[in-house]
Protein backbone atom coordinates (compact mmCIF):
# COMPACT_ATOMS: atom_id res chain seq x y z
CA UNK A 1 0.00 0.00 0.00
CA UNK A 2 1.43 3.31 -1.00
CA UNK A 3 1.36 6.16 1.44
CA UNK A 4 -1.17 8.83 0.67
CA UNK A 5 0.30 12.12 -0.41
CA UNK A 6 -0.07 15.08 1.89
CA UNK A 7 -2.69 16.68 -0.31
CA UNK A 8 -4.75 13.52 -0.59
CA UNK A 9 -4.71 13.25 3.16
CA UNK A 10 -5.90 16.84 3.54
CA UNK A 11 -8.72 16.22 1.11
CA UNK A 12 -9.81 13.10 2.95
CA UNK A 13 -9.74 14.92 6.30
CA UNK A 14 -11.79 17.69 4.70
CA UNK A 15 -14.49 15.33 3.44
CA UNK A 16 -14.58 13.23 6.61
CA UNK A 17 -14.86 16.18 9.00
CA UNK A 18 -17.42 18.04 6.93
CA UNK A 19 -19.36 14.81 6.60
CA UNK A 20 -19.33 14.46 10.35
CA UNK A 21 -20.81 17.93 10.85
CA UNK A 22 -23.60 16.98 8.43
CA UNK A 23 -24.11 13.75 10.32
CA UNK A 24 -24.35 15.61 13.66
CA UNK A 25 -27.05 17.79 12.17
CA UNK A 26 -28.96 14.79 10.90
CA UNK A 27 -28.64 13.09 14.28
CA UNK A 28 -29.86 16.13 16.25
CA UNK A 29 -32.80 16.79 13.96
CA UNK A 30 -33.79 13.13 13.96
CA UNK A 31 -34.23 13.31 17.75
CA UNK A 32 -37.14 15.68 17.15
CA UNK A 33 -38.78 13.27 14.74
CA UNK A 34 -38.13 10.34 17.02
CA UNK A 35 -39.83 12.10 19.95
CA UNK A 36 -42.76 13.11 17.75
CA UNK A 37 -43.30 9.69 16.20
CA UNK A 38 -42.84 7.87 19.48
CA UNK A 39 -45.36 10.08 21.27
CA UNK A 40 -47.88 9.78 18.44
CA UNK A 41 -47.59 5.99 18.43
CA UNK A 42 -47.68 5.55 22.22
CA UNK A 43 -50.03 8.41 23.03
CA UNK A 44 -52.35 8.19 20.07
CA UNK A 45 -53.58 4.74 21.04
CA UNK A 46 -54.45 5.89 24.58
CA UNK A 47 -56.10 9.11 23.55
CA UNK A 48 -59.90 9.16 23.55
CA UNK A 49 -62.80 11.47 24.28
CA UNK A 50 -62.79 10.50 27.96
CA UNK A 51 -59.29 11.93 28.27
CA UNK A 52 -60.66 15.41 27.65
CA UNK A 53 -63.92 15.11 29.56
CA UNK A 54 -63.43 12.87 32.61
CA UNK A 55 -61.64 13.10 35.93
CA UNK A 56 -58.75 10.73 36.71
CA UNK A 57 -59.85 7.34 38.02
CA UNK A 58 -58.31 5.87 41.17
CA UNK A 59 -55.65 3.19 40.83
CA UNK A 60 -57.09 -0.12 39.70
CA UNK A 61 -59.99 1.32 37.72
CA UNK A 62 -59.12 1.77 34.10
CA UNK A 63 -60.30 4.66 31.96
CA UNK A 64 -60.82 8.17 33.16
CA UNK A 65 -59.21 11.32 31.83
CA UNK A 66 -57.41 14.50 32.72
CA UNK A 67 -60.09 17.13 32.23
CA UNK A 68 -59.20 18.75 35.55
CA UNK A 69 -55.53 18.97 34.58
CA UNK A 70 -56.34 20.59 31.25
CA UNK A 71 -58.51 23.20 32.95
CA UNK A 72 -55.91 23.67 35.70
CA UNK A 73 -53.13 24.28 33.20
CA UNK A 74 -55.31 26.72 31.27
CA UNK A 75 -56.15 28.66 34.44
CA UNK A 76 -52.53 28.90 35.49
CA UNK A 77 -51.47 30.02 32.01
CA UNK A 78 -54.18 32.68 32.25
CA UNK A 79 -52.80 33.91 35.56
CA UNK A 80 -49.28 33.83 34.12
CA UNK A 81 -50.42 35.93 31.16
CA UNK A 82 -52.22 38.46 33.36
CA UNK A 83 -49.25 38.90 35.70
CA UNK A 84 -46.17 38.21 33.60
CA UNK A 85 -47.09 39.78 30.26
CA UNK A 86 -47.78 43.38 31.35
CA UNK A 87 -44.75 43.54 33.62
CA UNK A 88 -42.49 42.12 30.92
CA UNK A 89 -43.95 44.31 28.18
CA UNK A 90 -43.64 47.55 30.13
CA UNK A 91 -40.19 46.69 31.42
CA UNK A 92 -39.14 46.06 27.81
CA UNK A 93 -40.71 49.37 26.80
CA UNK A 94 -38.81 51.08 29.57
CA UNK A 95 -35.54 49.53 28.37
CA UNK A 96 -35.94 50.57 24.76
CA UNK A 97 -37.55 53.99 25.19
CA UNK A 98 -36.64 55.55 28.52
CA UNK A 99 -33.84 53.88 30.45
CA UNK A 100 -30.50 55.57 30.96
CA UNK A 101 -27.28 53.56 30.81
CA UNK A 102 -27.09 52.50 34.44
CA UNK A 103 -30.73 51.54 34.88
CA UNK A 104 -30.79 49.74 31.52
CA UNK A 105 -27.76 47.71 32.55
CA UNK A 106 -29.36 46.80 35.87
CA UNK A 107 -32.71 45.81 34.35
CA UNK A 108 -31.08 43.76 31.58
CA UNK A 109 -28.81 42.02 34.05
CA UNK A 110 -31.72 41.19 36.35
CA UNK A 111 -33.82 39.92 33.43
CA UNK A 112 -31.00 37.73 32.12
CA UNK A 113 -30.34 36.37 35.58
CA UNK A 114 -34.03 35.58 36.07
CA UNK A 115 -34.17 34.01 32.61
CA UNK A 116 -31.28 31.69 33.37
CA UNK A 117 -32.59 30.75 36.81
CA UNK A 118 -33.54 27.05 37.09
CA UNK A 119 -37.32 26.83 37.13
CA UNK A 120 -37.24 24.83 40.36
CA UNK A 121 -35.65 27.82 42.12
CA UNK A 122 -38.56 29.98 40.92
CA UNK A 123 -40.79 27.35 42.51
CA UNK A 124 -39.01 27.75 45.87
CA UNK A 125 -39.33 31.52 45.58
CA UNK A 126 -43.09 31.41 45.06
CA UNK A 127 -43.43 28.80 47.78
CA UNK A 128 -41.80 31.09 50.35
CA UNK A 129 -43.60 34.16 49.00
CA UNK A 130 -47.14 32.86 48.48
CA UNK A 131 -47.65 29.31 49.72
CA UNK A 132 -46.06 29.73 53.18
CA UNK A 133 -47.95 32.90 54.19
CA UNK A 134 -51.25 31.57 52.81
CA UNK A 135 -50.61 28.12 54.30
CA UNK A 136 -52.16 26.65 51.16
CA UNK A 137 -50.96 25.28 47.83
CA UNK A 138 -52.96 27.06 45.17
CA UNK A 139 -53.66 27.64 41.50
CA UNK A 140 -52.71 31.25 42.13
CA UNK A 141 -49.24 30.30 43.36
CA UNK A 142 -48.66 28.04 40.34
CA UNK A 143 -49.83 30.75 37.96
CA UNK A 144 -47.59 33.32 39.63
CA UNK A 145 -44.58 31.01 39.32
CA UNK A 146 -45.24 30.69 35.58
CA UNK A 147 -45.85 34.45 35.36
CA UNK A 148 -42.48 35.23 36.95
CA UNK A 149 -40.84 32.97 34.37
CA UNK A 150 -42.55 34.93 31.60
CA UNK A 151 -41.28 38.33 32.78
CA UNK A 152 -37.67 38.08 31.54
CA UNK A 153 -38.70 36.39 28.28
CA UNK A 154 -41.13 39.23 27.53
CA UNK A 155 -38.79 41.98 28.71
CA UNK A 156 -35.90 41.09 26.45
CA UNK A 157 -37.95 40.29 23.36
CA UNK A 158 -40.15 43.39 23.70
CA UNK A 159 -37.02 45.51 23.94
CA UNK A 160 -35.61 43.84 20.85
CA UNK A 161 -38.73 44.36 18.76
CA UNK A 162 -39.21 47.97 19.87
CA UNK A 163 -35.61 48.78 19.04
CA UNK A 164 -36.10 47.32 15.59
CA UNK A 165 -38.66 50.06 14.80
CA UNK A 166 -36.86 52.49 12.44
CA UNK A 167 -35.68 55.80 13.89
CA UNK A 168 -37.17 57.61 10.90
CA UNK A 169 -40.67 56.62 12.02
CA UNK A 170 -40.07 58.13 15.45
CA UNK A 171 -38.53 61.26 13.97
CA UNK A 172 -41.46 61.74 11.63
CA UNK A 173 -43.88 61.58 14.51
CA UNK A 174 -41.82 63.89 16.74
CA UNK A 175 -41.36 66.33 13.85
CA UNK A 176 -45.13 66.58 13.50
CA UNK A 177 -45.22 67.80 17.06
CA UNK A 178 -46.33 64.63 18.82
CA UNK A 179 -45.01 64.16 22.32
CA UNK A 180 -42.75 61.19 23.02
CA UNK A 181 -45.53 59.38 24.83
CA UNK A 182 -47.87 59.84 21.89
CA UNK A 183 -45.12 58.70 19.52
CA UNK A 184 -44.58 55.55 21.54
CA UNK A 185 -48.25 54.72 21.91
CA UNK A 186 -49.37 55.56 18.38
CA UNK A 187 -46.29 54.84 16.26
CA UNK A 188 -43.63 52.69 17.90
CA UNK A 189 -45.76 50.11 19.70
CA UNK A 190 -48.15 49.48 16.77
CA UNK A 191 -45.15 48.92 14.49
CA UNK A 192 -43.82 46.28 16.86
CA UNK A 193 -47.12 44.63 17.79
CA UNK A 194 -46.66 41.53 15.71
CA UNK A 195 -43.26 40.83 17.18
CA UNK A 196 -44.57 41.28 20.70
CA UNK A 197 -47.50 38.93 20.07
CA UNK A 198 -45.01 36.37 18.80
CA UNK A 199 -42.90 36.79 21.90
CA UNK A 200 -45.95 36.37 24.14
CA UNK A 201 -46.95 33.16 22.35
CA UNK A 202 -43.44 31.74 22.59
CA UNK A 203 -43.27 32.68 26.25
CA UNK A 204 -46.60 31.03 27.05
CA UNK A 205 -45.60 27.93 25.09
CA UNK A 206 -42.41 27.70 27.07
CA UNK A 207 -44.00 27.97 30.51
CA UNK A 208 -46.91 25.70 29.51
CA UNK A 209 -44.61 22.69 29.70
CA UNK A 210 -42.93 23.69 32.95
CA UNK A 211 -43.31 21.10 35.67
CA UNK A 212 -40.71 21.89 38.31
CA UNK A 213 -42.12 25.24 39.55
CA UNK A 214 -45.60 23.70 39.92
CA UNK A 215 -44.61 20.70 42.06
CA UNK A 216 -44.90 22.62 45.31
CA UNK A 217 -46.96 25.64 44.31
CA UNK A 218 -50.08 24.26 42.64
CA UNK A 219 -49.25 20.73 43.89
CA UNK A 220 -51.87 18.53 42.25
CA UNK A 221 -55.45 17.47 42.69
CA UNK A 222 -57.36 14.31 41.82
CA UNK A 223 -60.57 16.27 41.51
CA UNK A 224 -61.78 19.58 40.17
CA UNK A 225 -60.05 22.51 41.82
CA UNK A 226 -62.39 24.48 44.04
CA UNK A 227 -60.98 27.83 43.00
CA UNK A 228 -57.80 29.81 42.47
CA UNK A 229 -56.96 29.60 46.18
CA UNK A 230 -56.94 25.81 46.14
CA UNK A 231 -54.52 23.25 44.70
CA UNK A 232 -55.08 22.18 41.13
CA UNK A 233 -53.98 19.44 38.81
CA UNK A 234 -51.94 20.44 35.76
CA UNK A 235 -50.92 18.59 32.63
CA UNK A 236 -47.11 18.58 33.17
CA UNK A 237 -47.33 17.52 36.83
CA UNK A 238 -49.80 14.78 35.91
CA UNK A 239 -47.39 13.49 33.24
CA UNK A 240 -44.60 13.39 35.82
CA UNK A 241 -46.64 11.68 38.54
CA UNK A 242 -48.11 9.13 36.15
CA UNK A 243 -44.80 8.43 34.40
CA UNK A 244 -42.97 7.55 37.63
CA UNK A 245 -45.88 5.49 38.96
CA UNK A 246 -45.76 1.67 38.72
CA UNK A 247 -49.17 1.28 37.02
CA UNK A 248 -49.49 0.43 33.34
CA UNK A 249 -52.79 2.20 33.01
CA UNK A 250 -51.27 5.42 34.37
CA UNK A 251 -48.35 5.08 31.96
CA UNK A 252 -50.80 4.98 29.07
CA UNK A 253 -52.47 8.12 30.39
CA UNK A 254 -49.07 9.79 30.71
CA UNK A 255 -48.35 9.11 27.04
CA UNK A 256 -51.70 10.53 26.01
CA UNK A 257 -51.10 13.62 28.15
CA UNK A 258 -47.59 13.96 26.73
CA UNK A 259 -48.94 13.89 23.20
CA UNK A 260 -51.53 16.56 24.00
CA UNK A 261 -48.99 18.81 25.73
CA UNK A 262 -46.39 18.45 22.98
CA UNK A 263 -48.97 19.12 20.26
CA UNK A 264 -50.10 22.33 21.98
CA UNK A 265 -46.54 23.53 22.60
CA UNK A 266 -45.31 22.81 19.08
CA UNK A 267 -48.41 24.34 17.45
CA UNK A 268 -47.95 27.51 19.48
CA UNK A 269 -44.30 27.62 18.42
CA UNK A 270 -45.06 27.08 14.75
CA UNK A 271 -47.88 29.62 14.88
CA UNK A 272 -45.68 32.24 16.50
CA UNK A 273 -42.88 31.65 14.01
CA UNK A 274 -45.13 31.87 10.96
CA UNK A 275 -46.51 35.15 12.30
CA UNK A 276 -43.00 36.54 12.54
CA UNK A 277 -41.95 35.07 9.20
CA UNK A 278 -44.73 37.05 7.50
CA UNK A 279 -43.46 40.28 8.99
CA UNK A 280 -39.89 39.75 7.86
CA UNK A 281 -40.86 39.32 4.25
CA UNK A 282 -43.37 42.14 4.26
Amino acid sequence: MTLLSRNQRRKIVNVVMLGMTAFSTLLSVSVLFFVLVYLIVKGGSSLNVAFFTELPKPVGESGGGMANALVGSAKMLGIAAITGLPVGLLAGLYLSEFAGRTMAGAVRYAADLLNGMPSIVIGIFVYTLVVLPMKQFSTLAGGLALGIMMIPIMTRSTEEFLRAVPVSLREASLALGASRTLTIVRVVVPAATRGMVTAAMLGLARVAGETAPLLFTSLGNAFWSQGVLHPTASLPVMIYNYAVSPYDDWHRQAWAAGLVLLTLVLLANLGARSLLGGQRHA
Partner: peptide
Protein backbone atom coordinates in the same frame (compact mmCIF):
# COMPACT_ATOMS: atom_id res chain seq x y z
CA UNK B 1 -36.10 25.98 13.05
CA UNK B 2 -36.37 22.24 13.72
CA UNK B 3 -33.69 22.54 16.39
CA UNK B 4 -35.58 25.42 17.99
CA UNK B 5 -38.63 23.16 18.13
CA UNK B 6 -36.41 20.55 19.78
CA UNK B 7 -35.55 23.15 22.41
CA UNK B 8 -39.26 23.81 22.92
CA UNK B 9 -40.07 20.22 23.95
CA UNK B 10 -40.94 20.31 27.68
CA UNK B 11 -38.42 18.61 29.90
CA UNK B 12 -41.02 16.30 31.43
CA UNK B 13 -41.52 14.78 27.97
CA UNK B 14 -37.79 14.13 27.66
CA UNK B 15 -38.08 12.40 31.01
CA UNK B 16 -41.02 10.30 29.81
CA UNK B 17 -39.14 9.18 26.70
CA UNK B 18 -36.02 8.68 28.82
CA UNK B 19 -37.81 6.25 31.14
CA UNK B 20 -39.46 4.36 28.30
CA UNK B 21 -36.68 4.21 25.72
Amino acid sequence: MLLELLAAIPSVIYGLIGIAV
